[in-house]
Design a protein around this nucleic acid. Structure first.
Lengths: 114, 114
DNA sequence: TTCCGTAGTTCAGAAATTCGGAACTGTTGA
DNA sequence: TCAACAGTTCCGAATTTCTGAACTACGGAA
């Protein structure tokens, strides 16, 4: 398993962020991670929207979010804890995440994106 | 040629908008249309970013933007005039387009999206 | 009318991407 | 050492994207 890649703030690309958040399933995952009280492990994220996401697909989704710079993943023992990088992204692209989550009806004020 | 489809405001989907604007080439096209002084015809949009976009590809890009609800196309004789639906989209998803164009460094204040 | 040029769409095959089950890696605890 | 667990990687199938070629539609000239 190769180490996780996380882009630096100055390397964030709007197209990667928009692409990552153009999939409602990934938005649900991201909103859960960005919201309060999520453990952020893959297992906890596997059935958010009524269907169980296959774990290979989930792993790909996490990779897309991670490489867009939206989340940061840290291995803790056997599991991975993910947390959002909203504040960093918001510094680079002010208002972007808040506007996107709001468009999806996701109450950005409960995250740290507003 | 089948008639052009334009979604009603209430049918706009954030995922379609984000997907449409997750391609820098489409963003350039959209920014040009949303900006001042563009005729908005395909011919006028074919070489914005240093390369000439093949016209079949351009036609697909226009379709993606149109069906996301970002632009409206009207046939005028032999050509098609495209103009942005920024104001409508902004009513439905306030601040979204402005934040996206700003993230791309596209000065939304010159469009009617701010 | 018929023909021609222009603007853009549709078609179709190649290339690239996405999806998801199976196999795998790495960690913890018995 | 072994088993269970969390997540990743592999790989084939399905879907999507790209673009040249063919096509449609309109307007103007003869």
């Amino acid at each position: 398993m190769r180490p996780l890649f996380h882009p630096a703030i100055e390397d964030l690309k709007p197209e990667a962020i928009l692409y990552a958040l153009s999939d409602p399933e990934r938005v649900a995952i991201f909103a859960q991670i960005a919201g309060v009280g999520s453990s952020g492990t893959c297992t906890a994220l596997a059935n958010l929207g009524g269907r169980v996401i296959p774990k290979s697909s989930l792993s790909q989704h996490m990779k897309v979010l991670r490489e867009a710079g939206l989340i940061r993943g840290e291995r803790h023992g056997v599991e991975m804890r993910n947390h959002s990088r909203c504040q960093e992204v918001d510094q680079r692209f002010p208002g972007l995440i808040a506007a996107i989550l709001s468009a999806y009806g996701r109450r950005p004020e409960e995250t740290n994106a507003g």
